[in-house]
Design a protein around this nucleic acid. Structure first.
Length: 274
DNA sequence: CTTAACGCCTGAAGGC
DNA sequence: TGCCTTCAGGCGTTAA
């Protein structure tokens, strides 16, 4: 479900709500969502641990304890965190985990499709997910030169390259479509054939769109909510995603089309995106 | 090495 | 009403 702006929004919300709290225990419905531990181990791992902060790494959330231990979670398609200090109001479906803190407040993990994962790391261990991760798009790592290197020899369409987390970390299907439309670039262009001018535009657009989406608390297409259970607002600013059949807002000539690339829907304007 | 298809799940929506 | 297909902010595994 969430891409970088949604994860960023969730991380901010978590830091606001649960930073500094001490974990008491966790209830786990589906042990298979724990990548490298059992329910029992997860419990002994977090019991008494004080949360220093939550960080975002690509689309991962990293819960970091004062002790130096941490766990990494990926929300995949439908994972979300709901903070609750009022058990009376809890009537959500698909709650897969319940974290209880020593002050009796709780963090619920909801995940309809159950693709989300949790992975534990001892103090000093470096999560392998982080070393596999590509360029962090909101950092100074994102430069045209860097993209040129990463796309070198890649014949895969630029749309697919933008979704490859080992190249750039954090972009998903919505923002890939929006970014390519923003710079009038065809989603079918082989990544290695995007010229330097377009690569420069691409770096500017990636930053611009992700930052704008973060300012708007992300995109709520179906059921994404912030930790405070509010919708994002960026869905009101989408120009191509899920707009097939409507007239392109730029050229006012052609309708937005939808096709499939790597099993994912791509939305684009055949007139503007060459 | 890169690339593309499949599978993991649940539920909503649309066609007939 | 019901049945069937398609679709969904993702990615690890496998095979070519």
């Amino acid at each position: 479900m969430p891409e970088l702006p949604e994860v960023e929004t969730i991380v901010k919300g978590l830091n606001k709500k649960i930073k500094g709290k001490r974990f008491a225990h966790v209830e786990v419905e589906l042990e298979r969502q724990l990548s490298n531990s059992t329910t029992e181990h997860f419990n002994s791992f977090i019991k008494g641990e004080k949360l220093d902060r939550v960080d975002r790494v690509g689309k991962y959330l990293q819960f970091i304890f004062e002790s130096g231990k941490c766990f990494l979670t990926h929300l995949r398609m439908t994972g979300k965190f709901i903070f609750s200090d009022n058990i009376e109001s809890e009537e959500e479906r698909h709650i897969r985990m319940v974290f209880t803190f020593t002050d009796d407040s709780r963090l619920l993990y909801q995940d309809m499709r159950t693709f989300g994962t949790f992975k534990l790391y001892e103090s000093g261990e470096k999560p392998e997910e982080m070393s596999r991760m590509g360029i962090e798009p909101l950092s100074e790592q994102l430069t045209p030169q860097n993209l040129k290197e990463r796309f070198k020899g890649r014949k895969t369409p630029i749309k697919n390259a933008l979704l490859d987390q080992s190249l750039i970390a954090g972009i998903g299907n919505i923002y890939a479509c929006e970014i390519l439309f923003d710079i009038n670039l065809s989603p079918f262009t082989p990544a290695c054939e995007v010229d330097e001018g377009k690569l420069a535009e691409l770096t500017v657009s990636i930053r611009k769109i992700l930052e704008l989406a973060i300012e708007n608390n992300g995109t709520s297409i179906s059921d994404y909510r912030t930790v405070e259970d509010k919708t994002g607002n960026f869905q009101n600013m989408l120009k191509v995603y899920q707009k097939s059949g409507t007239l392109c807002v730029k050229c006012n000539k052609e309708q937005i089309l939808r096709t499939k690339q790597a099993q994912r829907s791509t939305f684009y304007c055949p007139h503007c995106q060459k």
